[in-house]
Design a protein around this nucleic acid. Sequence first.
DNA 1: ATGGACATGTCAGCAATATGACAGTCCATC
DNA 2: GATGGACTGTCATATTGCTGACATGTCCAT
Lengths: 227, 227
Amino acid sequence: MAEKTKLWYLQNFNMLEGMSPKMMKELEQNTSMQSNSKKEIIYFPEDASNTIYFLKMGKIKIYRLSEDGKTTTLQLLGPGEIFGESAILGQDTHDNIAEVVEDAVVCAIDKRDFQDLMEKSSKLTMSVNKFIGWRLRKIQAHVEDLVFKNASQRITSFLHRYVETFGKKMVDGWMVRPFLTHQEIADLTATARQTVNQVLNELAERDVIKFSRRFLHLKGDLDQLES
Amino acid sequence: MAEKTKLWYLQNFNMLEGMSPKMMKELEQNTSMQSNSKKEIIYFPEDASNTIYFLKMGKIKIYRLSEDGKTTTLQLLGPGEIFGESAILGQDTHDNIAEVVEDAVVCAIDKRDFQDLMEKSSKLTMSVNKFIGWRLRKIQAHVEDLVFKNASQRITSFLHRYVETFGKKMVDGWMVRPFLTHQEIADLTATARQTVNQVLNELAERDVIKFSRRFLHLKGDLDQLES
DNA sequence: ATGGACATGTCAGCAATATGACAGTCCATC
DNA sequence: GATGGACTGTCATATTGCTGACATGTCCAT
């Protein structure tokens, strides 16, 4: 396969669709591309927020630590998503930790360059607004889940989203690979590792899923993972 | 007027400042003003999201209901704040309920008019971005509270924010008036009414606060309401 | 192939806080 | 100034799901 260019990568982001070739060229010149392997940290809280990132491959998690060492993961991001957006939202430092969960390819753009482009293209600005709206909606849904749902419902509906977002449809259901550790799911759902284990095994018991360290297989339709 | 903290400034930053008089004039012509009294609903979920609102006076709460009738309040907004912003973030319906908590005066602007203005003024666009970033930060902090703090810490730190945002500095501490009902605090902190009652009385016992249905008086410094 | 590190499985006990019930209080308004 | 409805205070009880402890399993580097 031909090596994929930076331009090719950039063109595949929804947020950038509809931009003129000239703009894309300009964007490309200001973009640097980097590969990051599992467990690498892209930024920490308090780090200067000068760069906005486009995730091309792999997975990134955005999370926080409490004073007493607990973890909560705010987002699990896959290809096509943007992070570090606080840079263009008027913050000069990050609030969260961004860590690579699966080896990633990331495009980095300086916030000034990006802001220049936004000034030139109201289309881009609109896309950015849309993206932020999406982000806001997702986190509001997260709050709603935390308040209204119990642990097992949160885990089940997380699995739903996870399969929907990252899984492949098969004749006999859905397959996601690789799978997450139970601790990672616990951090995403504000539950304990042991609770995740229990819920996962109950679902396997009921023959809704099959799983191992490497994969998650949903037998049948997504709506089996309701609430 | 109360001493202005950084938070106060952030909360009340005027999204429209720095706009030319001509722009302001244009904005004014597209703005309608309305008064709404306590318990009035400004919008429901699924309502068309065509309008963005500026709150001039009073308080508004943004909240959600669960299927089984529970309530969680996402935000309590005071003068200077904007709501209904989903209109300019690419959503065509609202997700939340906006209800008047204290008799309010609200300016309403059609989203198209506002978007036109944004196209003309990149300064306004930047301000909007900043505002959204601030909103995003607040809700992330909300998630962090829900996950890391226990009920009484959530209630106490809510009181901290409430006093800081809405209170007046006095010689002997801070005064907020009117106060909220215990149920309203419970909805804001994802706790039960009875728990709020208990925590409030404990704080009064420890002589940190004095309160009634009408007012909340913090005796001394804000940092007594830590975590 | 082996050892060590990390992940999973399982269980008992406990703590936090929700729930439900009911009495007491406030206050708007008739 | 009487009355009804909403709000507050207090308790006893139920329960969810966390914690800690430990055994077992899996993977990878050497």
